[in-house]
């Protein structure tokens, strides 16, 4: 049960942080989303994000900074085996599930539904 509680609290706090940025600056929601993906990649690069993933599970994997971190981790994993060239391959492999499912389901829903307004 505690894995749920940790995921709830860590994920929730990350959203609170994003909400504070939205409310206290002039940035729009789209800007905040971009900012947090970049922050995720930077935190990943500094070795800070992966420990959070291991501690909070979905609490750190579901929010968007996880995307930036995952791309970074994917690159570095590939670099270990393939060298510098992996900068061009590892990232999308790591993000494949998220991007492919978003395109697929996004396209499917757009094709099947009509906007409500």
């Amino acid at each position: 049960m505690s894995s749920y509680a940790v995921a709830f609290v860590v994920g929730g706090l990350m959203c609170v942080l994003a909400q504070l940025v939205l409310d206290l600056t002039r940035l729009t929601a789209a800007h905040v989303m971009v900012l947090f993906v970049v922050l995720g990649a930077v935190a990943g690069g500094l070795g800070l994000y992966q420990p959070l993933v291991e501690f909070a599970g979905a609490g750190a994997m579901v929010p968007l900074p996880s995307f930036g971190n995952a791309v970074f981790q994917g690159i570095m994993e590939d670099v270990d085996t393939r060298g510098f060239i992996a900068v061009f391959t590892g990232g999308l492999t790591a993000a494949a599930w998220g991007i492919t499912s978003a395109i697929l389901f996004g396209w499917l829903v757009a094709a099947l539904f009509n906007p409500k307004g």
């Binding site: 939205l22 729009t28 929601a29 789209a30 906007p115 409500k116 307004g117």
Partner: peptide
């Protein structure tokens, strides 16, 4: 029209933004 104007000037109406 709310929906035509919003998507032209700002964001799609189905986008989850405050």
């Amino acid at each position: 029209h709310h929906d035509t104007a919003e998507r032209q000037y700002r964001l799609p109406t189905e986008f989850a933004s405050q």
